[in-house]
């Protein structure tokens, strides 16, 4: 059960959730920074643009 990785789960959850989960991790290492860049650029799994919604201030 505990061996189930976050990456495997993220594949199910979708790129928006994966991007968020990567960004809020305490251990933001080079590998994760690379993955965030890929997701934000819309590569690999293809992040839909609707993710970029401006927050209400």
């Amino acid at each position: 059960m505990l061996k189930k990785s976050r990456e495997a789960q993220a594949a199910v959850d979708g790129p928006e959730v994966e991007l968020l989960l990567h960004c809020v991790r305490p251990d933001l290492d080079a590998e994760r920074v690379g993955r965030i860049q890929t997701l934000a650029a819309g590569g690999a799994t293809g992040l839909p643009l609707r993710v970029w919604r401006a927050p209400t201030v």
């Binding site: 968020l20 990567h22 960004c23 809020v24 991790r25 933001l28 994760r32 920074v33 965030i36 860049q37 934000a40 650029a41 970029w52 919604r53 401006a54």
Partner: peptide, 18 residues
């Protein structure tokens, strides 16, 4: 936390307005 992560990882890839 999201802002911190994006700013560190890919500030150029996020639309400036966002």
């Amino acid at each position: 936390l999201l802002y911190r992560g994006l700013k560190r990882a890919c500030p150029d890839l996020v639309p400036p307005a966002i």
